[in-house]
Design a protein around this nucleic acid. Sequence first.
DNA 1: CAAATTTGTCTATTGATATAGACAACTATA
DNA 2: TATAGTTGTCTATATCAATAGACAAATTTG
Lengths: 256, 256
Amino acid sequence: MEGGGKFMTGRQEADSIERRSGVSLWRQIADRILQAIAIGDFAENAALPPEVALAERYGVNRHTVRSAISALVQEGVLRAEQGRGTFVLSRKRLSYPIGARTRFSTGLQGQTSERHIVLLASSIEPASQRVAEGLGLARGAEVIRLETRGEADGRPVSRAAGWFDARRFTGIDKAMAETGSVTASLARFGIDDYLRQSTVLSARHADAADLADLDLQPGAIVLVTVAVNVTPDGQPIQFSESRFPAERVELKLSAL
Amino acid sequence: MEGGGKFMTGRQEADSIERRSGVSLWRQIADRILQAIAIGDFAENAALPPEVALAERYGVNRHTVRSAISALVQEGVLRAEQGRGTFVLSRKRLSYPIGARTRFSTGLQGQTSERHIVLLASSIEPASQRVAEGLGLARGAEVIRLETRGEADGRPVSRAAGWFDARRFTGIDKAMAETGSVTASLARFGIDDYLRQSTVLSARHADAADLADLDLQPGAIVLVTVAVNVTPDGQPIQFSESRFPAERVELKLSAL
DNA sequence: CAAATTTGTCTATTGATATAGACAACTATA
DNA sequence: TATAGTTGTCTATATCAATAGACAAATTTG
């Protein structure tokens, strides 16, 4: 029973693996295992099926499965013990909420014991076309750019660039460095509340910058959001582009 | 340093390519070209830079670039003409809106000249755990499952499975086959309006089923949404899982 | 027409990917 | 303690991926 099971269950399952696809088999199998963990097929701390069983299941050689497992061990997802088995270390994906009032820290409450934003860099630059459009400024107007990384339990879960009107938000880089919070920084400028006006979402393979920023292994997938935050009366205050590692994060879109 | 140019522009650019990553260079370059087209770097009908220029730009051999181009020609994204150049065929990605009132047809108005939903299959089955949770039914309760494909201008842009309470929506499969519209089908059961209660979003490599369903090439990425639609008073009516080809579709999250 | 530019094809070589088989090392258990 | 089950290591072979160079074929330009 290879492909016949597709309609049998309520879940998309590992029917097969694509050869000569430009994606190596071990990478595809590593992705499958990651996904299986994410949807709860392999419980945390539980043993994976033995290598020979996985090899049969995916229709490849045992050594190919070993390459996949070896990559996941490198990533800290699995732990292999000779004679015993291979065990799942990492938890399910974080569920990052996106809605009218998207906030980093509050959204992950309950899922992680610790979370924070690190300001990596800031700069002043002329607004590019899309930034200018998003913020309702003239192209080339001065904007402040903040580069940040979100971390939860010590692991990177997001990497964002945010742009603000440099005139209105002079010094927001310092505020951000001190508070570690966009919400708190904006409060210093009299912004008590802000809303997510629009979010555009896409996905792609991680490039070199993503790999470094998010501590990913080559071949990983990133979710990309491009968003505009506005004041309650509709004035644009922030344009942002965020990247999330798809293997560690899912986005939960909440009405509101 | 490698990524020195990273802070120079407002755009994530092609700093480099990852070797021995499990993803072949030609596939990575094909992804880059797709992305460049999607964000408008290469205009429609315009010529791509010559192969030698691309090879230099990405730091690979010309033949590797040719492999990437050849894959994109297969996918119908590019057209190569000997002696002239290689040209961009496909348009930008469709922007598929997701919000409180997500509807297939209305959402794509203006972006495509033609769009419709095809009912591929339907069945009655016991509710799996997650379907039951989503619909607020007991696990194992009978549900109707509709398998559909969304097409715009003749190209697949979505592939969805939708589940409905079999008791309440007996015959919705026929309604769907006749009307080709979820909204119209639900109207027959007295549902004039419905809202998107929750959407969970993730991304992964396309598996064999995705490749067949969405007419993709191996190595492609799919966006996956899992959603629950409810009546205005909060009663769950539909649980769905949809897959979108990331190279052809982006999701636009609209407030409310 | 001639030259320059660009894509297409061919041969050859190297390294990564995948398969195959055998056996060692370690663990749990009967 | 013996046995079965599991991960770890090794050798060998075949195929795919990537590089390198040369030249043909088609198109555009001077």
